[in-house]
Design a protein around this nucleic acid. Structure first.
Lengths: 124, 124
DNA sequence: CCATTCTGCTTGCAATTGTTAACACGGCGC
DNA sequence: GCGCCGTGTTAACAATTGCAAGCAGAATGG
């Protein structure tokens, strides 16, 4: 596994924030016992719990996922992730953009020829 | 939940790719029965399984997470997600950049103490 | 000295994930 | 008719998540 351990990452963040196990548990909405087990690597938290903890620790969800090994590297261009995490788009807009982008990518991969009818605008 | 169902999304992608349940299961490395249950909304797949299915269906992991409701809206600027998904950075570089960025953001939030949702207790 | 109140840790327990069987239905060849 | 492979579905099962409740130890104060 690429993740050395997500527990010590969370623990570092928690101690850096100078809050106790129970305080973090309360803010994240999970039990204190579970936080303890997560920090020592005894349990592997789900994505939902991971996101809650990230929110409580003022860390972005993608950052936590990346650390947990849930977000990989080579399967995508950066564009999609940027879309997914952009705070200035609504969820519907994200899904539309994402789906369009994926459709384009699939078609490109299938045909592999440059006959492209719809130009793709690059957004800085 | 904002996601009506992740199952029909997967099913649509699978039928669009014209592959069977078992083919998708094999490529994703999960059981065929489980794919069936997921597509009908009987089970909620974990992030790992979701990522495997996404890979098998040639869809990016963030796109799948977004569709499953695991990736939210208000968590960050697009910067971090872009870092996470950038194929030209090593994992270690991503983590370093991410951590630095998060640290900056935390310090900004701490010093610009004004319109804040959750107060941070400071011990004098 | 004892009570209180922190800290984190351990122990059962319910709910869920994900698998390995099977199952029913349908098409095609003998 | 009978097999054989294909589709998706269901049932029983082991493994895991996540929680409520209680544990020991240290600090503080009556």
């Amino acid at each position: 596994m690429q993740t050395p351990d997500i527990g010590s990452f969370i623990k570092d963040l928690r101690e850096n924030a100078k809050i106790s196990l129970r305080q973090l548990a309360e803010q994240a909405g999970v039990s204190n016992a579970y936080i303890s087990q997560i920090e020592r690597g005894l349990r592997k938290p789900s994505a939902e719990v991971l996101a809650s903890i990230a929110s409580a620790l003022r860390v972005s969800t993608p950052a936590m996922y990346l650390r947990a090994g849930l977000l990989g590297t080579d399967d995508t261009h950066g564009v999609l992730a940027a879309i997914a995490a952009d705070a200035e788009l609504t969820l519907a807009q994200k899904q539309s953009l994402t789906q369009i982008y994926e459709t384009f990518r699939r078609e490109n991969a299938r045909e592999a020829a440059g006959t492209d009818g719809v130009p793709v605008e690059e957004k800085p």
